[in-house]
Amino acid sequence: MAEPLLSLRGVKTNIGRYHILHGVAFDVAEGGLTMLLGRNGAGKTTTLRTIMGLWRAAEGEIRFAGRDIAKMDTPDIARLGIAYVPESMAIFADLTVQENLILAARSGPIDQKRLDWIFSRFEALKRFWNLPAGHLSGGQKQMLAVARAIIEPRRLLLIDEPTKGLAPAIIAHMIAAFRELKDGEATLLVVEQNFAFARQLGDAVAVMDDGRVAHTGGMAAFAADAGLQQHLLGMGMDTHQ
């Protein structure tokens, strides 16, 4: 089997004096979409932030495309081709939609063909192109946050709860966009609470519990095993939406 694109081994992260991750280990294979699941507080967001270098791993190894990135600074990690969509979306409210995307397109002017593709999926962004992003609705902000991550080709997308608070119609567009991405150029690691969404899209799954990865495997097998779901995700998981 080929070397995984991203691989974590024994990653421990502390925030202040609290230990959040107690030795996270899992792989993300190149191509396809890995769902990172788990109860609230299991450490999913911390895992993404640690990969991105926003919180420093106290111990352990994070390998991306063959390099250890655990000690690298966030901008350097981003420049290796990793994009991050935080749960808070973190759009720049004072900047217009256009300006948000100009900044996200690091290597130069925005590629018009790619932009047209994004517009076809997230039509609202075209409509509000010159509006300060702070005035967008929650769903539109989420579209912008995702659009920012994919405005240029990236190798790995880290996306934290893309469907949180979204209307079903928008979720359908999101699913379509992620599908096209994973079938094309990118690898995705997505944190999700919405299991209905997760099972539609996920190829592989890693389930976290109390700062560790408790289960890894294929999504199909995990979706079929109600007992395992109940054990690892409990009632905290949204199974219908």
């Binding site: 926003l54 901008p75 420049r79 994009a83 973190a90 004072d94 900047l95 690091r106």
Partner: peptide, 17 residues
């Protein structure tokens, strides 16, 4: 302007703030 709002995100986009 983006950095004033959210420096972390500017770094996540690959810029050295």
């Amino acid at each position: 302007r983006a950095g004033v709002e959210n420096g972390e995100m500017v770094e996540s986009l690959g810029y050295r703030i």
